[in-house]
Design a protein around this nucleic acid. Structure first.
Lengths: 195, 195
DNA sequence: CCTCTTTCTTAACATACATCAATGCGTATC
DNA sequence: GATACGCATTGATGTATGTTAAGAAAGAGG
């Protein structure tokens, strides 16, 4: 078994008690791929047919607005799963782009994988509902910060939540995630040093 | 059966084929209440033990930030269900307030109602997953607007999405929902008349 | 019907953040 | 090792939105 798939299997087994042969059956829905820095995995307008599990490396998902500006929605380092859930679930064109920030080992997971797994294993659908709630909580928190917190506060929150990502992600991307310009982030950081 | 409960029953039956006696059994988890304008239904810090179904009237959910400013998260007119899902699901203190914008008829739905209903009726858990995805889609869209759209664009989007609420909600609340001040919204509107 | 409160509007002024432009630094590329 | 490119920083300036304050309009309550 390829290493990326193996790592993914361990990830799944944490939430669903599936045995080797059960997993084997589902493995037709999985593809391990190496992607290089900058490579696109999903393009806005496409229907999202896969989830992407990062075995090694780092992905990002982002939108592009009318003025052509990117807005980063999420980072996805090792052990994370990323997809456009709405697009998958409703079978609608995605408005997300997903690409690689670093050379990465990714497992492409066909949506059918989760359907099958849920059928075989009720623990997994519980896990799925759990992760939907986590997702809501996380986005909701982001809305709150965007509504009520300054650039500095949002940056501090980012550091608190994702300290290990700080050195791996270029600052202009962090700025994009925070909803500010790279110049502003630079100034925020300068101000924080001063203190 | 009280009218509010009756309306709620119809709402449920749209997604779950439950018969009278089945519903009767679950009705112990339901309470119909009249609430007056301004009345609090949920306070931040409490664990959210209920969902609230609006049979008549209008609710709002909101947070209060460190500086004491309110940020409206959601409006909930007739036929809508509102709750702090994260708080209910994870059994954590809520950070939401919910109160009534108008005198309203509300059904208080104990969280157990949905648990029981899901057990009895698999269609309903499907409905539930569906609505979780809808929720994610909606919040995600809001994040996008906050990241990339001007006050005017956000206002126009609000009008597009909730035209029927425009006259029922005071403008300062709409401003709060949009993440701007009432004064700014007033200017935006003036500017729109001019065009 | 009058009073009191809340909401909306307008204006002057303040500020956080964006934009534009220049510079420097690291590091990939050949 | 020279070139070039992406990224971070800094400064000058611009702009959308916030703040404060006042008055007008609308609505609620007695």
């Amino acid at each position: 078994m390829e290493e990326a798939i193996f790592i993914f299997k361990n990830y799944i087994q944490q939430s669903a008690p599936i045995d080797e042969s059960g997993f084997e059956q589902l493995s037709k829905y999985l593809k391990s791929k190496k992607v290089v820095k900058g490579q696109l995995l999903l393009r806005a307008g496409e229907v999202c047919k896969n989830s992407f599990f990062t075995a090694k490396g780092l992905l990002r998902s982002y939108t592009i607005d009318k003025q052509g500006k990117e807005h980063i929605i999420q980072f996805s380092p090792e052990g994370w799963l990323v997809a456009d859930r709405s697009s998958s679930f409703f079978n609608e064109p995605s408005f997300l782009y997903i690409d690689a920030i670093e050379d990465s080992d990714i497992v492409y997971i066909d949506n059918l994988f989760f359907d099958e797994l849920s059928k075989q294993c009720s623990d997994f659908s519980l896990f799925n509902i759990n992760s939907l709630h986590h997702h809501i909580k996380q986005i909701q928190n982001r809305v709150n910060l965007l509504l009520g917190a300054s650039a500095e506060e949002r940056y501090l929150d980012f550091i608190r939540l994702y300290p290990e990502l700080l050195m791996r992600i270029p600052q202009w991307m962090i700025a994009s995630y925070l909803g500010i310009t790279p110049e502003s982030l630079s100034r925020v950081r300068k101000e924080l040093y001063r203190k």
